[in-house]
């Protein structure tokens, strides 16, 4: 009995401290700190917007210097636009807000998902760079009510 107990004790001591296992594939999906929707938005932005606005929305795309007025830096300008106005610009171009016609309307080319994704990514581009970024809305999980 004592021997059995000793063996059990010895076996018990070999237990390694637990490290939570990694969800490897989910880690591989991660696009930096971006949520899935923001990441989708970044891809749409790269495809349709970055030539003028620059990949990060700094207003430094390769076609930016051909434009007057030039595309703005979203870090400085985006806060001035309400989410509704942002959508109006994406769908109807800057002309929809009575500004220049240089930013064209994408409402007929993009589907609702892409517009939503763009809106999400715009918020990312407007954040001060270098700071700790918050978790996007897509990351939050609904918890059971108590």
């Amino acid at each position: 009995m004592t021997v059995l107990f000793a063996v059990a004790l010895a076996a018990g001591c070999q237990r390694t401290p637990e490290v939570p296992p990694v969800d490897a594939v989910q880690e591989a999906f991660r696009d930096g700190e971006l949520s899935a929707r923001e990441s989708h938005g970044r891809r749409v932005f790269a495809e349709r917007c970055a030539t003028c606005h620059g990949a990060e929305g700094r207003g430094d795309g390769q076609n930016a210097y051909n434009l007057d007025p030039p595309p703005p830096d979203f870090q400085e300008s985006l806060d001035a636009l309400s989410p509704e106005d942002r959508r109006r610009v994406i769908e109807g171009g800057t002309a929809a807000l009575g500004r220049s016609a240089l930013c064209p309307p994408w409402g007929r080319s993009l589907d609702e998902l892409e517009v939503e994704a763009l809106l999400a990514y715009l918020v990312v581009t407007s954040r001060p760079s270098g700071d700790e970024e918050e978790t996007g809305p897509g990351r939050r999980r609904w918890r059971r009510p108590r």
């Binding site: 076609n63 051909n66 434009l67 002309a95 016609a101 064209p104």
Partner: peptide, 17 residues
């Protein structure tokens, strides 16, 4: 009106898209 020169060159000016 539609801002086409933002992307297209006409004459000597316009965009490179």
């Amino acid at each position: 009106r539609h801002g086409c020169q933002a992307c297209h060159i006409v004459g000597d000016s316009g965009g490179f898209v």
